[in-house]
Simulated scan of single mutants.
Amino acid sequence: MKISSLTRTRRGRALLATVPTVALIGALSVGVAQGSVPVSMAVSSQQFKISADKLDGTGFSQYAGVAKDAKGAKHPVAIANIKDATLDNLCQSVKVPGMPLGLMISAGTDPKNPVEATDLQIGMSDLRGTATFGEIRIGVDASTVTTKAKGSKGDFAMDSDSIRIDGLQQVSMSTSAAVFKLADLHLRLTDGKECF
């Protein structure tokens, strides 16, 4: 009986701690949805999932990099940069460690009104989908890619004038953008359900 009460109390506290965070994210998301808030978000030492029916972008580059968590630990990632991107039916999900609780954001459910991002940068550990590149260049020096963000001199990289990914599924450590416009935004708590 005591153990059960203690478990309920801990879960209750965790839920209470989540409420202000969700409220803050919700308030920021309204500004983001209106295109008025520059966005830079990272999940500290925790990966999250992103999916989209389709990503269309111009000005693409990719190279190896490192993401740092709050404790300063370094995590190897593949860094992708896209100058301008649109995403159809975007989903982002993250789970609360050790609990049947998560957070899910969906947007751009109407193909006529997709999610829009500028200067998008993603630090990922896994990517799946069907990709089409326009004017691709493979094996360029990471410090010379055509995007504003660049890698280290001497590192292997690729870039292209355009990119399209159908059936996008990725596991990410960080995502940032100069502006993220989320049409038809829906943010909700879940029982740990993920985008894929």
Rank of each mutant, 00 (worst) to 15 (best):
G151F: 01
A107R: 08
R164T: 15
S160W: 01
I79K: 14
T86I: 07
T86G: 06
K74W: 05
A117S: 06
G98T: 05
A85F: 09
I79W: 05
A78W: 08
V96M: 11
G123S: 13
I136M: 14
D88S: 10
G154N: 00
D69A: 02
S162G: 06
R128G: 12
S152H: 12
N113P: 04
K95P: 07
S152C: 00
G98K: 09
N89V: 01
K74T: 15
M99F: 12
K150L: 00
A131G: 10
T144G: 00
T144C: 03
G154M: 02
D126V: 15
K150S: 05
P100K: 05
D110R: 10
S93V: 06
P111N: 08
L90H: 01
D84V: 14
A117W: 03
G72W: 09
T118M: 08
R164W: 04
N113D: 13
A78Q: 12
S93K: 10
T109F: 08
T144K: 15
S93F: 07
V96F: 11
G98M: 04
N113W: 03
K83H: 11
S143H: 07
I136K: 11
E116P: 00
A142N: 02
A142W: 01
I105R: 13
L87I: 00
A80C: 11
D88A: 13
I82C: 01
I122L: 12
A131P: 03
V77A: 06
T146M: 09
P76C: 09
P114K: 06
A149R: 08
T130E: 10
G129N: 06
G72H: 09
M124C: 05
T132D: 12
S162W: 05
G123Q: 08
A117I: 08
A117E: 03
T147A: 06
T144V: 08
S152M: 07
S93W: 05
D110G: 11
G98V: 04
P114E: 00
L87W: 06
N81F: 13
A131I: 10
A149G: 00
K112A: 14
I136Q: 08
S160P: 02
N89K: 15
F133H: 06
R128A: 14
G102E: 01
G139A: 07
V96S: 07
A85N: 02
P114H: 02
V145T: 09
Q92T: 09
M158P: 01
G167L: 05
G123D: 09
E135A: 13
M124A: 15
K150P: 05
G151S: 04
K153S: 13
K150Q: 09
K74E: 15
E135G: 03
